[in-house]
Design a protein around this nucleic acid. Structure first.
Length: 185
DNA sequence: GATAAGATCATCT
DNA sequence: GATGATCTTATCA
């Protein structure tokens, strides 16, 4: 079942842990690239200094202020693309960064058993062949990049929280426990 | 564990 | 002109 706009039109911090165990799917012609989402980070609202949106609406960040269920893709450090899904109502800037994905195995209803982990947002984009072409596109079959729920049940025990990575400049926002990930997968 | 440097460029000031 | 939602490698503790 493909996750649609209504799934993303909700509190970012409520959605973020729910994305764990969902599948990121990329279709290129007849080929599919897919993997189970194992780590995400939430960037929430106009005041979160770790979020690009805290500097106000600019040509780059306007997609964060737009409709939920769209992709926000940008280049950091001159070499890595990062993939985010826009959340919350139009006008409120928020997104979830997809940091890690498990691939190369059929989980058969489990979050374990993957033979390869793609760790880090830069590597996720490289593996899924994602670049700025997807920026401002919607997450559905038409764009060729979407998120699916395959009915894997996630136990609250499997979900860990921690501070976000690489945002030490963000003042009091730096320690917000808005990173969600699976432990021991 | 913590901290740092280098690669390399779109974005913002 | 400065900087970063990264990644790798290195050094210190």
């Amino acid at each position: 079942m493909i996750l649609i706009t209504s799934f993303f039109n909700d509190s970012t911090l409520r959605i973020a842990p729910k994305l764990l165990g969902k599948f990121l799917v990329r279709k290129i012609g007849k080929r599919r690239i897919e993997g189970i989402i194992t780590e995400v980070e939430a960037y929430v609202g106009p005041y979160d200094r770790a979020s690009h949106a805290s500097r106000g609406k600019t040509p780059r960040t306007e997609v964060m202020f737009g409709k939920p269920g769209y992709w926000y893709v940008y280049l950091v450090y001159g070499m890595h693309h990062c993939l985010n899904i826009i959340t919350e109502r139009e006008g409120y800037p928020a997104a979830i960064l997809i940091r890690s994905v498990g691939v190369e195995a059929d989980p058969r209803g489990s979050i374990r058993g993957f033979t390869q982990m793609i760790t880090g947002p830069g590597r996720v984009c490289k593996y899924f062949k994602i670049d700025k072409r997807f920026n401002k596109m919607s997450a559905n079959k038409k764009s060729g990049l979407w998120i699916e729920d395959r009915g894997i049940r996630i136990s609250a025990r499997d979900i860990k929280r921690g501070k976000r990575i690489g945002v030490d400049y963000a003042g009091k926002w730096r320690n917000k426990p808005w990173r969600f990930f699976f432990a021991n997968v």
